[in-house]
Amino acid sequence: MSKLSNDTVSAVENLNRDYICALDNMDMTGWLACFSQQGSYTFIAEENVRRGLPIAFMLDDCYERLQDRVTQVVDIQIDSTEHYQMRHFTQLTNIVEQESGTVRATFNFSIYYTQKDTNHTKILCVGRYEDIITLKGGKAEFKHRKAITDSNVLPRYVAYPV
């Protein structure tokens, strides 16, 4: 860990907590609120990252795409999805200041899912977040959150961001 202030680390931890709670609560508005107006989000397999292949599972490379991700989940696919409950478990593993007001952070994640109305709980994916986070007035926002899954083969179709 570098010499970042406790306040900065706290702001980053709080942002991540808001993010995972939003998803675990199926709150897509809360998910969107974690990103800045310049924000972007990627969900990609580790295999593609390792080989330098750009195809992702989700590639929301501008704020409008993030808004459309919310529309996709909330409006477009709401009827056809077999809904599942997610539980995110994360751990901050690295945080460094990139420039004034911007930090790079890495979190490990493991995400379980339980198919609605069943007792089947399984691992959805395990991997790491690579984040670029902006800090303004004590508030942190994702400029970019990249979820890289070690589980290259998803165990089911994935309806929500992770």
């Binding site: 969900f43 750009p54 195809i55 992702a56 599972f57 989700m58 590639l59 929301d60 490379d61 795409r65 996709q72 477009i76 696919q77 056809s80 999805t81 077999e82 998803l154 089911r156 179709y157 994935v158 309806a159």
Partner: peptide
């Protein structure tokens, strides 16, 4: 091609995730 392929098709795609939901049903 990269952003279209990543977002429209496959197991999370805007136009194809519904196909996947039908398989298991």
């Amino acid at each position: 091609r990269i952003r279209q392929s990543s977002n429209l098709l496959g197991p999370c795609g805007l136009i194809s995730m519904e196909d996947a939901s039908v398989f298991s049903r």
